[in-house]
Write a protein that binds this DNA or RNA. Sequence first.
DNA 1: GGCGCTCTATAGCGTCGCTATAGGTTGTAC
DNA 2: GTACAACCTATAGCGACGCTATAGAGCGCC
Lengths: 245, 245
Amino acid sequence: MAPRTTTPTTDGPATRDRILLAAASLLDEAAGGAVSTRAVCERAGVQAPTLYHHFGSRQGLLDAVVSHGFREHLAARQDREGGTPEDPVDAVREGWDAHVRFGLDHPETYAMIYGAVRPGEPCGVAREVEAMIRATLEPAARSGRLRVTPAQAAAEVFAASSGVTLALIQQPADGRDDGLSHRVRDAVLAAVLVDGPSSPTPAPGDGPAASAVALTAALDAADDPPLSPGERVLLRELLDRLAGG
Amino acid sequence: MAPRTTTPTTDGPATRDRILLAAASLLDEAAGGAVSTRAVCERAGVQAPTLYHHFGSRQGLLDAVVSHGFREHLAARQDREGGTPEDPVDAVREGWDAHVRFGLDHPETYAMIYGAVRPGEPCGVAREVEAMIRATLEPAARSGRLRVTPAQAAAEVFAASSGVTLALIQQPADGRDDGLSHRVRDAVLAAVLVDGPSSPTPAPGDGPAASAVALTAALDAADDPPLSPGERVLLRELLDRLAGG
DNA sequence: GGCGCTCTATAGCGTCGCTATAGGTTGTAC
DNA sequence: GTACAACCTATAGCGACGCTATAGAGCGCC
């Protein structure tokens, strides 16, 4: 009998993935604090030095779990639903709901992102999510539905939606305020989007020319745009060029 | 010589407060994870059983620190500024700002609240803060300025403001988006308050900002706008100014 | 005097994150 | 065909952690 002490690299999931999976399942099923490296090693059938060989530290492992889990969640969603809605604003709403749902599906994982916040720069996962939101907002901006820059809007949406998600996670599952997420979502979006389905801004597909015309008109009507006289003249010239005059 | 082994109850701060203070200072000065019960005991000049006698557990101590710190922050604010504004809606805005500022003043403490979130019921501190927000909203409700129940409004305000605070904490201190908090605040309040005669900002008609945003996006999507690279950069700067307000 | 609260003091249990050390097995490169 | 690096096993332990047990001293109160 061959002593089955070592696992050939060809069979089963790679050791790294087994560790990842073990950590993820422990994180999901147990109360947050219970994910010890020892428990992960036992479940993965792996020795401690192996874990540290792959992930460096406990935090490195947890970061990898969160990042991997979120990416999988997004992939699964896209597979299930074929794609994003055609209306860019509906797509933004859809993105908000997906974010909140991920948090409720994996509360321990989600809470862990914010358990490790430090005044310093990181958490990489949060940055990733915010960039994802900004990407969702870009089409809306292109159709003239945004009243602020996509970066600003993304910051607001990210902050508000993660706050809602954390608040919902803290509530007991049976007594959750089901409307909370949508109420805050619509409040934030209302402040970020131009009013109404049809706006004074040009039609979506018209390109820069129409937007330039609209902006020229808006500038003429505005009382005190934050521009110096020289800047005003300069901007006007550029807008005229864009308008194709 | 009397062996100064025990401290009479009459001199110095009470033991409980010394422990609280030691934990608070450790939390503020060190990176979050460094607040061990042993370090707290050493700094407070206290034995381990005493700590557990007063606070039950490490988490109980941390809860007390956060709660006490927040109450002190509020008291200090009220002392500095004479009291809450007479207009109930202004008081709500003031409460939001106080909440966010507390988080930025004590990032480690604030982040800790959310590091301990569990799907189950707790965290006592969060409940306490939400109740505080509800109390602030009560006068506004009494004067007929709320369009939802105070409890609903408090849930929204709590979720959004804590999300904003956590987002700001994660940003590097020098590159913080100063307007983020107020933008989200006004968005949430606008959805929760009846459209009163006194609004925070005088009816922002879409104006040039929305057109500027739309044009920026259209330029990004356009293949070959009739502009030189230099003109493009210049136009972008002007458009950002118009969009940023 | 008895009782309960508060605090000291020592000592220890079980667990944790992490590392040192050593040896076995693999696929690849020279 | 052997040397090599990567990967993994296995054991064993360090220092720190949260928390508790136990015993007793000083104090205020009925």
